[in-house]
Every structure is written in structure tokens, then in C-alpha cells.
Simulated assay, not measured.
Amino acid sequence: MLSDVVGFAAAAWGVVMAIAPALQIHRMLRTRSADDVSLGYFALLIPGFLLWVLYGLSRHDWPLVIPNTVATAVALVTIAVAASLKRNSARSAEARRSGRTR
């Protein structure tokens, strides 16, 4: 009984932790900049999240599967948003340089 309660609490807090990078996504979209985001950091987290998902699935342990699935999805969205903003920033910088030299 106690392990079920702790498992539920851990899974619930795990989901909260998993969506925490959404704050970073919000900041990137608000500032239109991903300069302070490390794509490598999120790229290193994703394999770990996926391993926990696979482990949880193998044990039918939903308190492991659910938050790590959410964390994987949020990390992938964070990478996609940051990469898009970094690409746009690079294009804008190139356009500014090209405009100055003409």
C-alpha cells in the first residue's frame, strides 16, 4: 500500500519535473532566442529518458513509464524549438552581414 502511494506521488512529481523544460520553451519563444540553451544537455538526457521508459515497460511500471515518456517528448520539443530559433538567428545574422557589405 505504501509503495503504491509513493509510486503515485513519484510519478506525479515526475510529470511535473518532465514538463519543467516547458518554462525554457516559453522563454525562448518570448525572447525569440535560444542563445542560452544547451542542445547537448537535452541530447544527453533523451537516451536516459528512453532507457527508463524501456525499463519501466519491461516491468510494467507505469510510475516510471509515464513521466519519462513526457520528459522525452518535452525534451524533443525543446530541442526542436531551440534548433529552429538558432537557425533563424544564424540566417538573420548572415543577412545583416550581407546587407552591410553591399
Rank of each mutant, 00 (worst) to 15 (best):
H26I: 11
L57E: 07
R27Y: 04
P21N: 05
V53W: 04
G40Q: 08
V70G: 03
R32W: 06
A10H: 06
S92R: 12
I79T: 09
L76N: 07
V65Y: 05
I46C: 08
T69Q: 02
L64C: 07
Y55M: 09
I66Q: 00
P67R: 04
L57Q: 11
G40L: 11
R102D: 01
G99N: 09
S98I: 02
L44R: 02
P63R: 01
D4F: 05
L50M: 15
A18F: 04
P67W: 00
T78K: 03
S89C: 08
A75C: 14
A9I: 14
P63W: 02
V81L: 07
L57N: 06
A22M: 14
V70I: 15
R96H: 12
L57V: 09
S33P: 06
Y41G: 14
L51S: 11
A90N: 09
G48P: 05
I19D: 05
L29Y: 07
I46T: 09
L51D: 00
Q24K: 09
A9V: 13
P21S: 06
R91C: 08
H60L: 09
G56F: 03
F8R: 00
A43R: 10
Y41F: 14
V81Y: 03
A90S: 15
A80C: 10
S92T: 08
F42A: 11
V6P: 01
P21F: 01
R30M: 12
D4V: 05
L39K: 11
A12C: 09
V37N: 01
T78G: 07
M17E: 12
Q24I: 15
P47M: 11
L76M: 13
A9G: 05
I66G: 01
L23C: 08
G56A: 07
L64G: 00
H26M: 13
R30L: 13
R97S: 14
R100Y: 00
Y41M: 15
A95S: 10
A22P: 02
V70K: 03
I19Y: 01
A83E: 12
G56M: 07
V74Y: 01
L57C: 13
W13I: 15
L64P: 01
L76H: 05
L2T: 00
V74S: 03
H60T: 12
L50I: 14
I46H: 05
V16Q: 02
S89F: 13
L64D: 03
L54C: 15
T101H: 05
S58N: 13
A95T: 12
D61R: 01
D35E: 15
A11T: 11
Y41E: 10
V53I: 15
V81F: 03
G40I: 12
A71H: 04
L29M: 14
V74F: 00
R100A: 08
A75Q: 05
V81R: 04
N68D: 13
T72Y: 02
D61Y: 10
Y41D: 06
W62M: 11
L39H: 10
R27T: 14
I79W: 02
M1S: 05
A12F: 11
V74G: 00
G56Q: 06
A82P: 06
I66M: 03
K86P: 03
N88W: 09
G48I: 10
